[in-house]
């Protein structure tokens, strides 16, 4: 069946089974490979994208359901908070192998959009679904705090 799906502000017509995970559509059909396939079972968070502004796991979201929403992926997310996160990620040298990082970044951006100055507890609550095999957790935490403080202070 054919689905019209809005990804990064563009409507794509995708011919596929409605039960295909959005992640597969993003990576295999639309060639947006910034979103990663970690587990395919909602266990790791590597596939996080924003669906109508909410962070969601694209490996467990069907094409059928996704076609009625606005999807933003790591390739196109933008805003002052995104730049702050990027800068903080670079400054803290957060990634190691990098595989989990697009998911980490998408969750971190959603966190800053919901909570201006997240505490350690807020970070735990929002980021606990994003696993990192390289254990970059401390740097992720530091970078989120850093980005939040840069966003709060006038430039």
């Amino acid at each position: 069946m054919s689905y019209a799906i809005s990804v990064n502000g563009q409507v794509h017509h995708v011919e596929d089974d409605g039960q295909t995970p959005l992640l597969w559509v993003l990576r295999d059909t639309l060639k947006l490979t910034g979103t990663k396939y970690g587990c395919g079972a909602a266990q790791c968070g590597a596939c996080t994208v924003h669906v109508d502004g909410q962070p969601m796991r694209s490996c467990t979201l069907s094409l059928e359901v996704a076609s009625s929403a606005r999807i933003i992926t790591i390739e196109a997310i933008e805003g002052a908070d995104v730049r702050a996160i990027q800068d903080a990620w670079v400054a803290h040298d957060v990634p190691q192998c990098g595989f989990c990082q697009s998911g980490q970044v998408m969750s971190a951006i959603a966190l800053l959009r919901a909570t201006e100055k997240p505490t350690d507890r807020d970070i735990d609550l929002a980021m606990s679904g994003n696993l990192c095999r390289c254990a970059t957790y401390n740097r992720v935490r530091a970078a989120i705090h850093d980005a939040a403080s840069k966003l709060g202070s006038p430039t």
Partner: peptide, 21 residues
């Protein structure tokens, strides 16, 4: 769920057989 990690981050309105969620 927590406001920043809702159950609906992973759990959709129906079982999703592909991921088993």
């Amino acid at each position: 769920g927590a406001p920043t990690l809702r159950c609906s981050t992973c759990h959709q309105a129906e079982n999703f057989e592909v991921s088993g969620v």
